[in-house]
């Protein structure tokens, strides 16, 4: 098991947002957590990354307990996050944004290889490499955020609401890229999404989160045909 979360509770002040959630992600899997706005999806990803403290419960990554580690230490251990709304560094160039992703891995030859690969994955970033990230469109920023996370060759990629604010064609493109990364490079991905249909389609397994609790879990194929989920999340 690459990631194992047990009885995770997350609270903001007195208000508990996530009430004891357990799930796991195996090496090479693409797993999604779907649910409505405010269900606690992003809180869970942020707690795994270490950006939000967990009130209780355990988070194990590669068999080590990481729930008390600082965010940058978890990043060093091989977890990377594509944050909600991209959060690129606006006044740094595209190239500099990508290089921050390589921080701590000072290896020139690898830097060039990774850049070449990412530019082939997202050609627009090559075109814009000298431009400030603030000048990119929302979709381009989202691609930059993904590339910035990928450049370090993470063991686990956390993806937070990547479809938010993107036009449908781009959502499809981004999801295809994620699926290919998972299938061809064996990248382990934990995806958190409001866009239930798209994430059920590309993921192997899924968890359905409702107001801080997991209500359903299983193979994405099966969940997609479950009448309760079809009604509540897919609008079918």
């Amino acid at each position: 098991m690459l990631l194992e979360v047990r009885d995770l509770r997350i609270a903001y002040g007195d208000i508990e947002a996530v009430h004891g959630v357990s799930f796991s992600v195996e090496e090479g899997e693409l797993v999604s957590i779907i649910g409505a706005n405010g269900a606690g999806k992003s809180s869970i990803l942020n707690a795994i990354m270490g950006l939000v403290p967990s009130r209780s419960g355990s988070i194990r990554f590669k068999t080590a307990e990481i729930s008390r580690m600082a965010a940058h230490e978890r990043a060093r251990a091989g977890i990377r996050l594509v944050p909600e709304r991209a959060r690129v560094f606006p006044r740094l160039t595209v190239m500099e944004n990508l290089r921050v992703g390589l921080y701590g891995i000072h290896d020139r030859s690898r830097e060039e290889k990774q850049l070449e690969w990412l530019y082939s994955l997202f050609p627009i970033l090559a075109e814009r490499s000298g431009q400030n990230a603030a000048t990119l469109s929302g979709g381009e920023q989202q691609q930059l955020a993904i590339a910035r996370a990928l450049i370090s060759d993470p063991r686990l990629l956390l993806v937070d609401e990547v479809s938010m604010g993107l036009m449908p064609k781009l959502v499809e493109e981004v999801f295809t890229v994620l699926q290919e990364l998972n299938r061809q490079k064996g990248l382990t991905i934990l995806l958190v999404e409001q866009n239930a249909l798209a994430s059920l389609e590309i993921s192997k397994r899924s968890y359905v989160l409702e107001t801080g609790r997991i209500q359903f879990e299983g193979e994405s194929r099966v969940l997609k045909d479950d009448p309760r989920i079809r009604e509540a999340y897919l609008g079918l």
Partner: peptide
């Protein structure tokens, strides 16, 4: 330098920088 880049990243977005492995 790398340290300079890390500082810039922190200035721009501390949360995003720390999830890239930069220690604030």
């Amino acid at each position: 330098s790398w340290s300079g880049l890390a500082c810039f990243a922190l200035r721009e977005d501390e949360t995003a920088a720390s999830s890239m492995g930069v220690s604030p």
